[in-house]
Computed example of a mutant assay.
Amino acid sequence: MTTSAIKSQKTLVSTDLGKDQIKLKHIIKSLPKECFQKNSRKAWTTIILSLSMAALGYYFLAISPWFLLPIAWIFTGTALTGFFVIGHDCGHRSFANRRWVNDLVGHIFMMPLIYPFHSWRIGHNHHHKHTNKLEEDNAWHPIRPEVFASWGKNRQSAFEFFMRKRLWWIGSIGHWAVVHFDARKFKPKDQASVKLSVAVVLIFAAVVFPTLIITTGVWGFIKYWFIPWMVYHFWMSTFTIVHHTAADVPFSPADKWNAALAQLSGTIHCDYPRWIEILCHDINVHVPHHISTAIPSYNLRLAYDSIKQNWQPYLHDECQFSWQLMKDITDNCQLYYTGVGYKTFDEYYAGK
């Protein structure tokens, strides 16, 4: 769709409403209808792309000399991140019209990552309902000083070490391990689905991991699964923290939280090298995904162009992925003071 066509789709622009009057339905109404249309060809093309790129990555791993393995690992792990994004669309029912197709494809593509599909789907939908809401957002939320003060010394030290040493890239591993495997943490109506998804990944691991070790040795397991899996978690952790974290991004208590503004201005668009965005199916064009999870990944750029046309004053500044960006986030966004914003550990200790 051309820029002029997007402009012609305007039914409501940001200047028509006061800041406190904006609701998600207003933003959704302003988007072109094409943004919400599922396209089977495009959807299955993402699968072909991810499968072929992962196969290419494993081929490189098999033939590469030792000094090229880091490049092959980065490429393969990034391709596997595309597997997660396909499962992500399935979890939001934006991959296919039939629920059973979404569930089947979601399980298949999250299975090699040992990610229980329904466990993630249920928890992740909670994140969308409570984005940037203090105490409720379960994807990434800042730690308030009073919460930090209530922790024991060991837990405080561990969190400080995590932030000061810039270990954000392993954050999603802890979230994966703690949240997704215990059905008791979910509502009774969801527990059967969670148990099914956990069983799927455990059966996969019970069959594939021993087979891989028997045929390629322990080093083969590390080379072909564990390190690419760690690269995947690097991107999973990075995407998660960058999507909603900057020194000026507010987290609000429930009584002051505005759903539309939280999704619109509390979600950050970050540009990554194009090869990463291709392999990860544009998941980093993240603002429209938070406006409506019904938008398939292949329509995110179209939707974002429209959002910029209509709602630019409320969008957070775009950023570009770099080591400096991650350094700024982990160095400055350490503890969150309600109504004030982020402060560092050093500022926290100085004020005691």
Rank of each mutant, 00 (worst) to 15 (best):
V207I: 15
F181K: 07
Q37P: 00
W311I: 08
S193Q: 13
H92T: 09
A183K: 11
A350H: 09
T215S: 14
K185W: 00
Q309V: 14
L51A: 10
G18F: 08
S30F: 01
I307Y: 02
S40D: 12
I241K: 03
A205Q: 07
K7D: 09
Q9V: 09
I28Q: 12
G91Q: 05
L68V: 09
A206W: 08
K42E: 11
S40R: 10
E34Q: 15
K10Y: 06
P112T: 08
A260I: 09
S197A: 12
I203K: 04
C333P: 02
A294L: 11
A350D: 12
P288E: 08
K38I: 13
F67K: 07
P32R: 04
A183R: 11
D137W: 04
A54G: 02
I329M: 10
W225N: 01
K23D: 08
A177K: 06
E146V: 04
M1C: 03
M110L: 15
I170L: 13
G106Y: 04
T81G: 12
A79N: 05
K343G: 15
L302M: 14
L196D: 07
Y336G: 04
H233N: 15
K19H: 11
W151G: 00
V249D: 05
A139I: 02
T216S: 14
M53N: 05
D103M: 05
I214G: 02
I122N: 02
D190W: 06
A149Q: 08
A262E: 09
T11A: 03
D328E: 15
S237Y: 04
G106C: 10
D20F: 01
Y272R: 05
L300E: 03
I63N: 10
I278S: 01
H107L: 06
F181W: 12
R93Q: 13
V208A: 12
K327F: 06
A350E: 13
I28T: 12
K327R: 13
R166A: 08
K185F: 02
K153I: 00
